[in-house]
Amino acid sequence: MTIDQIIFLVVAVATLIAAFRVVTTGNLIHAAFWLIAALFGVAAIFAILHASFLAVVQVVVYIGAISILFIFAVMLTRKDMRDQGPQLNRNWGFGAFLAALALVGLVFLVHGWSGVTKTAPAFPSEFDAVSALGNALVSPDAYVLPFEVASVLLVAALVGAVYVAYNRK
């Protein structure tokens, strides 16, 4: 095992443990913080993949905004700080079975795919992924349309969220 692999394994295992705690822990606030830990792990995975922009955006967007939003939402939707009752519904066993089934199916598919043993090509020395990404996002030949649609989606979500959550009194 090389250092890369060790780092990856450590990060991946930590991430998966955090993710598992997200879905099993009884305390929702803890779940949200575990989610933050899992998202940090994913950011680290991005960093290992040399996707530095994605890693930082993961921190800014997910941890800086989305998780905080979750914590807000958790706190706003409870009358007191303690959690009552079981946190899993009656069908959780069946849900676990289905999730496991999905995992088995996915692993089966991954296993059967020929490209799975690929190793990463050398990172081109003069290639700046961030500027390439920036150019791709605003180039008419590339992804300016999805980019603009995403912007519109965000504006619509902003307006919609304010409208839905607005307290008319």
């Binding site: 530095s52 930082v56 800014v60 941890i63 800086g64 905080i68």
Partner: peptide, 27 residues
């Protein structure tokens, strides 16, 4: 880092997190 500007904001996000943590956990 070629994304240093974003990095500053990302670090700020962690600061936000610490404050939320402190505020909530103090009961």
């Amino acid at each position: 880092l070629n994304i240093g500007v974003l990095y500053i904001i990302a670090a700020g996000a962690i600061g936000t997190l610490s404050i939320i943590m402190a505020g909530w956990s103090s009961n």
